[in-house]
């Protein structure tokens, strides 16, 4: 067993603990598995009040995912990168391959998280009915779009920030600072209006209005495009010497 294995085991247990814990966002009217998905991944927003436990669970889940990418990237860039990149012959081709791998993992992660939450809900006696009873005008489709699509976009934003930080500063410690800043930036007091790409996949942002949901998607897409432009500029400068 390596340190990485211990990290994955601890991380998995914390995820399960949050999903099953009755202390995390209890709600008397919650009856369906979709209520559970909504409440457990409530996260944080400027609109829906603030719960420290909810914020902590959100931070652990999503920063944990970014942290494992940072661990991978540190190891990768300090050795394998040179032997891989020279075979692709192009930084862009290499990055597309890496980005594809990461986007696939992020999507799988969210699907697994949603599936496990629903299955645990069913096992604990939640109703499979396709309604979100804790927020009357919210549909299951909207909830899933927020969780899966905006969740994926939010994770990709985080991954790109981790990548850019690693590329620019070439020191793993800077990424810990970046992830800390991302976590703090999700706080309502700093992200009033939700204009920073942090915490926007919290279900707390859902109002039941499609416009609000689509606005979050658009913000995350715009930030992702900006990050890709920054990466393209960094690649153009080519100053690759890591750690």
């Amino acid at each position: 067993m390596t340190k990485t294995h211990y990290f994955y085991i601890g991380y998995g247990l914390l995820c399960l603990l949050g999903i099953t814990s009755p202390l995390l966002n209890p709600w008397e009217g919650a009856t369906t598995v979709w209520d559970r998905l909504y409440l457990k991944f409530y996260g944080v927003s400027p609109y829906g009040g603030f719960s420290l436990l909810s914020f902590l669970f959100y931070s652990i889940i999503y920063t944990g995912f970014l942290y494992q990418f940072q661990l991978f990237l540190t190891d990768y860039l300090s050795g394998r990168f040179y032997y891989t990149a020279i075979r692709y012959q192009s930084l862009a081709r290499w990055f597309i391959h890496l980005g594809w791998q990461m986007s696939y993992k992020a999507a799988c992660f969210l699907v697994v998280l949603a599936t496990v939450t629903v299955l645990i809900g069913l096992a604990l006696g939640d109703s499979p009915e396709l309604t979100v009873s804790v927020l009357s005008n919210l549909t299951v489709i909207q909830l899933l779009i927020q969780f899966l699509l905006n969740g994926w976009l939010q994770l990709m934003n985080g991954l790109m920030i981790v990548f850019i930080t690693a590329w620019v500063f070439k020191e793993p410690s800077y990424n810990l600072i970046a992830m800390g800043l991302l976590t703090i930036a999700a706080l309502p007091v700093l992200n009033a209006g939700g204009w920073l790409p942090a915490g926007l996949n919290s279900t707390a942002y859902l109002s039941g209005q499609w416009e609000d949901l689509i606005l979050i998607t658009m913000k995350l897409v715009v930030y992702l495009l900006i990050q890709l432009v920054v990466i393209a500029v960094l690649f153009k400068r080519k100053n690759i010497a890591f750690y």
């Binding site: 390596t2 050795g79 394998r80 040179y82 032997y83 990149a85 020279i86 692709y88 012959q89 192009s90």
Partner: peptide, 30 residues
């Protein structure tokens, strides 16, 4: 449109590898 030369074999800095794979699996990935 290539950033790096072709047909170059390199050892730079230190041996890089995926620790959880065998030697053959690492080479196969490359």
């Amino acid at each position: 449109r290539a950033d790096f030369p072709q047909n170059f074999g390199i050892i730079i800095d230190r041996p890089g590898y995926a620790a959880g794979l065998t030697g053959f699996e690492n080479l196969k990935r490359w």
